[in-house]
């Protein structure tokens, strides 16, 4: 018998269960795109049949890091840039959990970019949501890794000399098996993409465009948006790595010309997840590792059995 009975519970789930009793009203600025992430996630989780207590939401630092203060589940608000290593280890420890990591563009593409690359490379079965508002919000509007070239801020008074990072392309090259971009202004698509990302058996990366009306731009500037799957102007195969790469490049460039392209950019359903790969080479047990501590019949090997090599 499992010691974790919230996991795999079959029942109707109301999206209100994810609204916390403490601080149910987020403290984000009025008009902030982060509200849309919260709303989409609250809708997506019941739809995929996941309850608050089988969900672990790990966040980084920044406005986006507050996500798990406003969404009721098991939560781990970690440190700047480090939500991914905490999240993926929790998944390795207890594979029954639905693990979601979230953070901002500074958190994920700047200070934590190394973890982003390697988590994607390893293809952990989890979802990673990046609140991409193209600016450092909670520290008051400094230039971020996705700010456009020439972006002026107190720390870049002459305008940024750097071209912005290309998050979708980086994700694809690193090894993500699901890559999508959605926008706060498109709530229906956002929910659908989060549902797909959570259900995907591998590392699912969602670049979520979240306008920052205080430091950057308001929602209007993300309108009109184009869903590349629905538009007749775009025709590419999301399962084809080369076509996906071209589409991503175009999408990333277009954003800075005022054209907002969203949708699924790459989907690989065949790539085994990291746990499957590790299990295939005998480096990870089939049962969740954590269960043995609560199983009275578990066998505990000891170092005494290793001593022959030392004689």
């Amino acid at each position: 018998m499992s010691a974790f009975n919230a996991i795999g519970e079959e029942r109707e789930i109301d999206s209100d269960e994810f609204t916390p009793g403490i601080e149910p009203q987020p403290t984000w600025c009025p008009g902030c795109g982060d509200f849309s992430v919260l709303k989409a996630l609250k809708q997506a989780l019941p739809e995929v049949g996941r309850t608050p207590e089988e969900t672990l939401l790990c966040t980084g630092i920044g406005c986006s890091g507050k996500l798990n203060s406003y969404l009721d589940s098991y939560g781990f608000h970690t440190i700047h840039g480090r939500s991914l290593p905490v999240a993926r280890a929790a998944k390795l420890a207890n594979s029954g959990l639905e693990v979601i990591a979230a953070g901002g563009d500074g958190d994920g593409y700047g200070i934590g970019a190394n973890h982003f690359i390697h988590s994607a490379r390893e293809n952990h079965d989890m979802t990673y949501i990046v609140f991409n508002n193209e600016v450092f919000g909670l520290t008051k509007g400094q230039t971020s890794p996705t700010s456009p070239k020439g972006h002026k801020s107190k720390t870049q008074p002459h305008g940024s000399a750097k071209s912005p990072l290309r998050p979708l392309s980086l994700s694809l090259t690193s090894g993500s098996s699901y890559v999508a971009r959605t926008a706060a202004v498109n709530p229906n698509q956002a929910k659908e993409i989060l549902v797909e990302a959570i259900e995907h058996d591998g590392f699912a990366h969602v670049d979520f465009l979240t306008q920052c009306p205080t430091w950057n731009k308001d929602a209007k500037q993300y309108v009109p948006y184009v869903d590349v799957q629905e538009s007749e102007d775009y025709d590419f195969d999301v399962t084809d790595r080369r076509e996906a790469a071209e589409m991503m490049y175009e999408t990333e460039s277009a954003l800075y010309d005022g054209e907002v392209l969203t949708g699924r950019f790459y989907v690989d359903e065949d790539r085994p997840s990291y746990s499957e790969e590790k299990q295939a080479i005998g480096e990870m047990p089939e049962e969740p590792v954590v269960e043995q501590y609560f199983d009275d019949d578990a066998e505990w090997k000891r170092s005494y059995d290793l001593l022959d090599r030392h004689k």
Binding site: A3, F4, N5, A6, I7, P52, E53, E54, L56, N68, S69, D72, S73, Y74, G75, F76, H77, A90, N94, G96, L97
Partner: peptide
Amino acid sequence: PGQKGGHYL
């Protein structure tokens, strides 16, 4: 995480 009734931040 995963235990019933135990969720916290």
